[in-house]
């Protein structure tokens, strides 16, 4: 059996997150080097401030400034920082209860080594040089042996408050399509379309996905289908899809290759878009180096009877 395929899959997007009033105030405060908490009705001060009381579920909006100094409540030494973490040299993850707060904030602590960190140690915020209204405006915490800082009593009202953040996230996966699809993709490189037959219902699946979805059993017998096929249905695409260099209008069709139990999808070319019809007989047109046919073009055969393809989805 040929080797199964693998390739990188990058899942990356800059998510645009609106904040709501409490988170807006907190992150704007960080930009202005002010740390805000939120008071619950029973008098606890939550830092970082959340919108809803985790105990009572009440909406809470009563902002109060706390100190940028505090105490480590627990810690963990990170020997090998990972991509996107706050520091690129070894550091401690810490939960810090800031002076004036009743709950703890998660962040990084810049310290020389694990032996210099302990629960109960005093720390203070190290502000980022450039701040935009984000949790990363706190660059990290650093050891601090002075008195608790006195908060200035900020009201939590700001001019030009940030209302959103852009949270870019990238994850790098390795995608492997598995046995059946690897075989299909490998055959495509010889410009052959090879499906798999279900041992139970005898239908031929193209592309094969490893299981006959109606019988729930493995498919394995390989069956070459096509190259000719029938357009079972289609639409005319009039808007340009992003990242696709195809002139509109074009026809996007479901094509049942001869011998296949169901249709696959492809573009129809070599015929004006408004002359494509259900039942049209087509064949693939390959271009050098492409994994899939560039498009399908009419074979010139007479159209297929509706009854021959109406049950091929």
């Amino acid at each position: 059996m040929p080797e199964v395929l693998k390739a990188p899959l990058v899942v990356e997007f800059p998510f645009t997150r609106s904040l709501g009033p409490v988170q807006s105030a907190f992150l704007t405060g960080l930009r202005e080097r002010v740390v805000l908490g939120v008071k619950t009705r029973d008098g606890r001060t939550l830092v970082p401030p959340v919108e809803y009381d985790p105990v009572t579920a009440e909406e809470i909006r009563d902002l109060v400034e706390v100190a940028p100094t505090g105490t480590v409540t627990t810690w963990a030494w990170n020997h090998e920082p990972r991509r996107d973490q706050p520091l690129d040299t070894p550091f401690a993850w810490v939960l810090v209860r800031l002076d004036g707060a009743d709950t703890a904030l998660l962040h990084a602590l810049d310290a020389p080594g694990p032996d210099s960190v302990h629960t109960g140690m005093r720390v203070r915020v190290r502000w980022a040089q450039e701040r935009a209204g984000a949790i990363t405006d706190i660059a990290c915490f650093e050891p601090y042996d002075g008195e608790p800082a006195e908060p200035a009593g900020h009201s939590g009202e700001f001019d030009d408050a940030v209302t959103g953040i852009v949270a870019a996230a990238r994850l790098d996966y390795t995608y492997s399509p598995g046995r059946a699809q690897s075989a299909y993709i490998n055959a495509l490189s010889d410009r052959r379309t090879v499906g798999e037959r279900c041992p139970s219902c005898r239908k031929v699946y193209v592309p094969p996905r490893g299981a006959c979805p109606t019988c729930g059993v493995a498919t394995s017998e390989q069956v070459e289908v096509g190259p000719g096929g029938t357009v079972t249905t289609f639409c005319v695409v009039n808007i340009k899809a992003k990242n696709l260099d195809i002139e509109v209008p074009y026809v996007y069709a479901h094509i049942a290759l001869d011998g296949a139990g169901l249709a696959l999808h492809g573009r129809i070319g070599g015929i004006p878009y408004d002359q494509v019809r259900m039942g049209l007989r087509v064949e693939p047109v390959w271009t050098e180096g492409a994994r899939y046919p560039d498009h399908y073009r009419p074979t010139g055969e007479p159209d297929a009877d509706y009854d021959t393809y109406k049950e091929l989805p």
């Binding site: 997150r17 988170q23 810690w75 990972r82 973490q85 993850w93 949790i135």
Partner: peptide
């Protein structure tokens, strides 16, 4: 990516780090 998307996820604290904070506690 399971973590608070505003205050925590941007710092990328991984699952082992969080468990280690709990272990130290």
């Amino acid at each position: 990516r399971q973590l608070d998307p505003y205050y925590v996820a941007p710092l990328w604290p991984d699952s082992v780090a969080l468990a280690a904070l709990q272990a130290q506690a």
